[in-house]
Nucleic acid binder design. Structure first.
Length: 213
DNA sequence: ACCCAGGTGGCCC
DNA sequence: GGGCCACATGGG
């Protein structure tokens, strides 16, 4: 099945997702770091804690005491690593751009991507999530769900992050909103369908599936 | 008592 | 370039 058809079917089944679930671009960055290998539910607790502690901004996180930050984001797991990395990213942003994220995000995608990838704690998926949902620029995010879906549907055998990203971008219209919604829908698919039973996981993508009618 | 979650970086070969 | 591993909480 063509990628665009899969997108349409998922959209029909799950409806629009209006991703990313965050109020500001900065919260997208924070969420993208905290949600690494962690359920969003736990990330929400950590973000709520950050907000209650008045730490949910670049300058505060750039200067926060590391022990305190660890305590605040604890529910998100890997809290030693994530505290250090989150603070490090904020220190970098604050030093170079202050509170003006737009100055960072106004750069062309390749430059922005390279710059973010150079920071400790920001790998390809996190960086692309930030570019897609915080900077609002069209780049296709590849995650475990996307890779699994691509392989199980026999869309492609490609497995490397960059190879998959380029494949998806090549076979889809270059459209910001489509990229944002498609990734959100794939995550929704992955979260709702059993990963140990391929048929179940792919259910909404099958013609005979009761949910996709 | 397992297994997994919207990854990343370090280390080894 | 590829294969392991540590990192950690909370829910099934």
């Amino acid at each position: 099945m063509a990628l665009l058809q899969i997108y349409k079917r998922l959209l029909k089944h799950f409806g629009r997702q209006y991703w990313w679930p965050a109020d500001t671009s900065f919260e997208v960055i924070v969420g993208a770091i905290l949600t690494q290998q962690t359920t969003w539910k736990n990330v929400e607790k950590a973000i709520d804690n950050l907000r209650e502690n008045d730490l949910l901004d670049v300058s505060s996180l750039a200067r926060v005491n590391l022990r305190r930050l660890e305590k605040v984001i604890r529910p998100a797991g890997y809290f030693h690593q994530k505290a250090e990395r989150l603070k490090g990213v904020c220190k970098y942003i604050y030093k170079n751009y202050g509170d003006d994220l737009d100055k960072l995000f106004s750069k062309p995608i390749p430059n922005l991507r390279e710059e973010l990838l150079s920071l400790n704690g920001l790998g390809p998926e996190t960086v692309d999530s930030i570019i897609l949902y915080a900077a609002n620029k069209p780049i296709f995010v590849i995650d475990a769900y996307t890779r699994r879906m691509a392989h199980r549907l026999g869309i492609t055998d490609l497995d490397q992050y960059e190879d998959l990203r380029k494949y998806f971008e090549k076979h889809l219209p270059n459209d910001l909103e489509l990229y944002q919604e498609f990734h959100a829908l794939i995550v929704e698919l992955g979260k709702n369908y059993c990963k140990t039973k391929p048929n179940c996981f792919l259910c909404p993508l099958r013609k005979e599936c009761q949910f996709s009618q």
